[in-house]
Amino acid sequence: MKVLKTYPDKCIGCHSCESACANLYFKEDNAEKSCIVISTDFSPPAMNVCNQCQTCVAACPTMALTVNNQGVVMLNKSLCIGCLMCVAVCPTDSMRTCLGVHSPFKCIACGVCTKSCPTDAIKIVTE
């Protein structure tokens, strides 16, 4: 399974990963629209991102959520009816939703954020 692994001890809370993610998926530098969420209210920072546990897959009524051959949970937006049931069942609060975006969104372990991280606090691994 391909997954974005986090190393909070290395995180310096620069939020570069959030910028990279939101810019890639929403063309906006807006942390609210990032699939990875860094909270510097904690020390070390809390790093919230999907662990590909697949709990959401079983909850989706339209089967818009599926698992690809790398073990990554993918959302097919054309099938999504925006019910947000996946958001509610996510055990790590990593299925994201935000103002003005009708469909939920999540980390698909693309790795773009890892390239922006100055401290190697995030890494794509295969488990």
Binding site: A58, A59, C60, P61, T62, I81, C83, M85, A88, V89
Partner: peptide, 11 residues
């Protein structure tokens, strides 16, 4: 473990 809603969005 099934999504047994009789309409979409019924959790």
């Amino acid at each position: 473990g099934m999504a047994d809603g009789c309409w979409y969005g019924c959790s």
